[in-house]
Each structure stands twice: as structure tokens, then as C-alpha cells.
């Protein structure tokens, strides 16, 4: 029984990182109706650049975290300018954007490979004090708690900003209708750039937290989360922020539970994706429907 609860807790921890990754994905989808398939590459570069900052400059982890998050956001701006903005006048911009975002993902990954090498790298030992807590037979670490607190904190901040801030409202207006937004005097191009910045900053932050959680980073770390992120936003309902959060946690838990119940880690992805299909059969619009970004 306690193994079961322990696994649920672990699933919750990793699920919160999935959720953080997925809200960035779903934010861009909700506002622009495009899938940014370079999101996983930004996740990777976020993680690797935080590690690089920590190791070469000796900055404390929190400072590297902030800088690398910012850097990820800037990569998002580059991504938008290069892969999406030039295509916006095209009638098929959703599909062509999808393809050019794959191209950017390949370039980003190759860059990561060249700069950081192919090996799996780790944060240096003793970089931060990790305390271990015991409750009955349950164990978790201060690092895990910090990770989940940051992930949930960022998700709450994003939700509140979308709901209440001037820019958040403008993002929702653009999500509903670009032309109407322009008629109201909203600078649509700038709002879209800001959407990419926020989305990518969150994706990068998720990469850093993921790297800290497993203490293993490599240029291919985005691979494992790429499809899961997509699954999570489909599960939560495309374009829904709360759906992505919920979907991420549900996905993380079902993954971990599969391993705990069957004892076979090889089944992990198969079962998690089966759960996805099952939910979609029962509720095709996903857990929280569609277009919720508009109402935030």
C-alpha cells in the first residue's frame, strides 16, 4: 500500500513537470491554432543551458534557472521570427508552420549536440543541499518539493496573468479573433511574440526542472517528453491551460503506477498512451474541452 502511495507521489512530482511543459505547448496552440513542434527542443536547450551556466560560471542553481528560463524565452522569439512569422500570410500557415517548426527543432537539437556534446551530463554533486524527509514509510526530498512548488507556482502565475493582466486578456482576444483584436487596437504581432516568449520560457523551465529531477541531461532529453507533451494537451483538451496541468499530472501518475503495478518499466509508455486513448474514446474533446484559453 505505501509503495502505491509513494508511487502516486512520485507520479505527481514528474507529472507537474509534464504539465509545465504542456502549458507552453497548449498556450501557443490556444492563441494561434498552431502546433509548435520545436517546443521539446527548447525544453532541452533550457535544461542544458542552465547546467552549462551552473558549471562554467559557478552561479547558484536558482540564478542559472532564472537566466536559462529567460534564454529559453528569447529562443522562442527567434523561433517565431524564423519559423512562423514569415508564413503567416499563407493560407496553409498552420501546416507549413508545423513543418518549419520541425526544421527549427532539428537545428536547435544539432546546436545542442555541437555545443554540449552527446553525453549525458549531470549537475555537480553537492551543488545544493538535498534533505530527505520521511513520513511513515514515504520518502521524498527537498529537491522534489522545490521542483513541484516551482512547476505549480509557474502554472498558477500563468493562469492568473491570462485571466487578469492586460496582456493576458489581449492574448485571449487574439485567440478568439485576430481581426477583431486588430480592430480594437491590440498590436497583434507583439502579442504573438510575447506568447511565444512565455510559452518557450515555460518550456525551458520545465527542461531545467526535469534535468534536476532525474539529474541527467542530454541533447536527446526532449525526445521522451515530446510525444508525452502532445498527449497531455490532447488529454487535457487542446488549448486549455487547466486541462494541460491536469493532463500532465494524470499522465505522470499513470506512468508511474504502471511500473508499480506491473513491475515492468517496458510497459510504462504503452499503458500511459492506452489511458490517453481510452479517455479520448470516452470524452473526445479531452478532460476540459477546447478553447478554454479564451475564457482562462
Amino acid at each position: 500500500m505505501s509503495v502505491f502511495i509513494q508511487q502516486l507521489i512520485n507520479g505527481f512530482f514528474i507529472g507537474s513537470v509534464y504539465g509545465l511543459f504542456a502549458i507552453g505547448y497548449t498556450l501557443v496552440f490556444g492563441v494561434l491554432d498552431i502546433l509548435n513542434l520545436a517546443h521539446a527542443a527548447i525544453f532541452t536547450l533550457g535544461g542544458l543551458s542552465a547546467l552549462w551556466l551552473t558549471r562554467t560560471t559557478g552561479l547558484p542553481v536558482w540564478a542559472s534557472f532564472c537566466l536559462a528560463t529567460l534564454f529559453s524565452g528569447l529562443l522562442g522569439l527567434v523561433l517565431y521570427r524564423v519559423a512562423f512569422a514569415p508564413l503567416r500570410r499563407r493560407a496553409d500557415s498552420n501546416l507549413s508552420g508545423l513543418i518549419s517548426s520541425i526544421a527549427m527543432a532539428i537545428i536547435f537539437e544539432a546546436g545542442a549536440f555541437e555545443i554540449f556534446g552527446a553525453r549525458t551530463v549531470r549537475f555537480p554533486q553537492g551543488m545544493f543541499a538535498v534533505r530527505v524527509y520521511h513520513f511513515d514509510s514515504l520518502t521524498f526530498t527537498s529537491l522534489q518539493l522545490e521542483i513541484v512548488a516551482i512547476a505549480l507556482g509557474l502554472m498558477v502565475v500563468l493562469s492568473l496573468c491570462l485571466k487578469h493582466s492586460r496582456t493576458g486578456k489581449a492574448m485571449r482576444a487574439v485567440a478568439e479573433s485576430e481581426t477583431t483584436a486588430r480592430l480594437l487596437g491590440i498590436p497583434v504581432e507583439r502579442i504573438i511574440s510575447e506568447t511565444f516568449f512565455v510559452s518557450s520560457a515555460l518550456g525551458g523551465a520545465a527542461g531545467i526542472l526535469f534535468g534536476l529531477y532525474f539529474n541527467a541531461l542530454g541533447p536527446d532529453m526532449g525526445r521522451s517528453i515530446e510525444l508525452k507533451g502532445l498527449a497531455v494537451i490532447i488529454l487535457g483538451g487542446m488549448g486549455s491551460i487547466p486541462g494541460a496541468i491536469l493532463g500532465g499530472i494524470a499522465f505522470g501518475m499513470s506512468e508511474v503506477l504502471t511500473v508499480a503495478l506491473t513491475g515492468m518499466s517496458s510497459l510504462r509508455d504503452a499503458v500511459a498512451f492506452s489511458v490517453l486513448l481510452l479517455i479520448l474514446i470516452l470524452k473526445p474533446s479531452g478532460l476540459l474541452g477546447r478553447g478554454r484559453i479564451r475564457q482562462a
Binding site: K169, R172, A173, E176, S177, T179, T180, L183, G291, R294, Q295
Partner: peptide, 11 residues
């Protein structure tokens, strides 16, 4: 105020 009103329906 555009044709067909174009209110932001979800907001």
C-alpha cells in the same frame, strides 16, 4: 464596430 458585431464571445 464591425459587421456582425464580432464580440469576443468567450470573454
Amino acid at each position: 464596430a464591425p459587421e456582425g458585431r464580432r464580440v469576443l464571445a468567450g470573454m
